[in-house]
């Protein structure tokens, strides 16, 4: 754990220096950090707990809408609305999971699409709540300690803090009782029960935590975009992107989802001129490569090789 926390600390230090070194590449860095945070949050449920959700855009949307509506209609500062969004996302996750956790494997994934689509329809149609299909605009934001939250630098630091907090959460959980419960339920629910673990309660906790963390990133995303439309925030494609980022990077690993975000956002940027809006092509190709040749994902495969090498060494000595 210490090893991973030190690694995170070093990355954080590099991140803090980043805006001074690359002041013109902040938007893409924000994108990497948000996706790293979302994919890592997703992975708590999808990787560590084995419940593949294709509906996480709902929580991104939830966070963004809380921040935007809170600010534009009630004058509430984003930090309050993000906390509220996290609480609300956890509650939503609880009921969502309560409804769908009797389904297993691909059926659970299908049900998450259905729930997310219903939520998207609500966001589009309930004008009084969300401003409907036209969206909500964030015109003003408070300036805590004189910081302009509309500046890309401030937004970069918010995204950096978000990604760091999520990864730190996973590092701590991976060593703790909860982390073992998550993985046990993923591997074999009966065997987990034999170890005294309540599988449904474990999955619900994972879903709630995953949803709450994702929504906080959603709130930051709302500030970054400043203009929020339901088509963007609740899109099935965003859910798919989040899930694939984690799976390509390596499900159930600490650094996999973040590595996935770096690779996928980076590749998207590299091929931006070639593929233009068709940049999801990269996700399609990479997920096929992963499913066919590296089922554990990039970091998962590296970690497995590392463990085998270590074990081979110990066996020799």
């Amino acid at each position: 754990m210490t090893k991973h926390l030190i690694g995170l600390g070093l990355l954080l230090a590099a991140g803090i220096a980043y805006p001074a070194i690359f002041p013109n590449n902040l938007t893409i860095a924000i994108s990497v950090l948000l996706f790293a945070g979302w994919a890592t949050s997703w992975d708590l449920l999808g990787g560590w707990n084995g419940q593949v959700s294709l509906g996480h855009a709902s929580f991104v949307g939830l966070g963004a809408y809380f921040v935007a509506i809170g600010q534009s209609q009630f004058g509430l500062a984003p930090w309050w609305t993000m906390a509220m969004a996290a609480a609300f996302a956890a509650i939503l996750g609880y009921f969502w999971g309560w409804l769908t956790f009797s389904l297993r494997g691909p059926y659970f994934s299908l049900s998450t699409i259905a729930v997310a689509e219903i939520l998207r329809l609500v966001a589009i149609n309930e004008d009084w709540l969300t401003g409907g299909a036209t969206g909500v605009f964030i015109a003003t934001l408070p300036e805590p300690f004189g910081i302009d939250l509309f500046s890309r630098t401030a937004q970069f630091y918010m995204a950096l803090a978000f990604a760091a907090v999520v990864i730190a959460t996973v590092i701590v959980i991976s060593r703790a009782r909860f982390g073992f419960q998550l993985r046990a339920v993923r591997e074999d629910e009966d065997s987990a029960m034999a170890a005294g673990i309540d599988p449904t309660a474990t999955k619900l906790k994972a879903f709630m935590l995953s949803a709450a963390l994702t929504s906080i990133g959603g709130g930051i995303y709302g500030i970054v975009l400043a203009f929020i439309e339901p088509h963007v925030m609740f899109a099935l494609l965003l859910s798919v992107q989040i899930a694939l980022t984690a799976i390509i990077g390596g499900r159930g690993t600490i650094w996999g989802p973040a590595a996935g975000a770096l690779v996928l956002v980076g590749a998207g940027e590299m091929f931006r001129t070639t593929f233009a809006e068709a940049n999801m092509l990269i996700y399609g190709i990479l997920i096929l490569v992963v499913v066919l040749f590296v089922p554990r994902g990039i970091v998962g495969e590296l970690a497995r090789r590392h463990i085998r090498r270590l074990y081979a060494k110990r066996a020799q000595s």
């Binding site: 046990a184 591997e187 005294g196 673990i197």
Partner: peptide, 13 residues
Amino acid sequence: FEELTVLENVLVA
């Protein structure tokens, strides 16, 4: 728990 090591398996319990 196949993806876990022997020690981790027992840690769960």
